[in-house]
Amino acid sequence: MKYIAIIILSLLSISIWAQTASEILQKIDDNMSSDNQIIESSMTIHGKRNSRTITSITYTVGTEKSFTEYLSPAREKGTKMLKLTDKLWIYSPSTDRTIQISGHMLRQSVMGSDMSYEDAMDDRKLSEVYEANIIGEETYEDKAVYVLELNATVNDIAYHSRKMWVDKQKFIPLKEELYAKSGQLLKQFTVSEVKKFNNRWYPTKMNYKDMLKQGKGTDMNVISIKFNQDIPEYIFTKAALKQ
């Protein structure tokens, strides 16, 4: 009897944990995703020999449409990227050409960073594609965090599982590890600054690193972010690329 009670209790606790885990994921999604957003950000790519910083502004509506324009450096200025569902077009002002990036090319790195186009494009909500479990609570960089383990619920996703250190108060993942099916650590994502915009927290300084490669990874800074703006629909058309 005693044992049964323990089992029931532990089952119960698992379900409570699970409940909270998906809640946490939901809260993260609430923070990170929105109906639409405009982000101005910079990306610093640490190459083997030098580092480069690229700034861009990105308009996103839902999860399917996004439009990015590069602002600096001069070489990249005016280059635009349009993503509609699983299609990606890039426009280059110097050649006045719109080029569609198809399947295999999506797996290439974005601007030499540790991120692939595919990484950048997959913006399905975490709660849609992963099932979360809380596997512990600890302190990360002086902040109380939940440690979450995420296992993919769909097949067509790059990373089989993730481990996340989520700030208990702000519901922002401060550190995230992305794993292969075999359990091999592939990429690591760390947040070093979180700021509040309107009433939501958003990471503003982060580092994205391919753990199999040597190097310092890619730093990303959010310069400004605006949520729920009026973004005209025409911006997500190929015609807009040329303007």
Partner: peptide, 16 residues
């Protein structure tokens, strides 16, 4: 014809 490749720094590059 447009060459679409990457610069020595890894940025994408287009040249017609």
């Amino acid at each position: 014809i447009t060459l679409f490749g990457s610069t020595m720094h890894g940025s994408m590059t287009f040249q017609t």
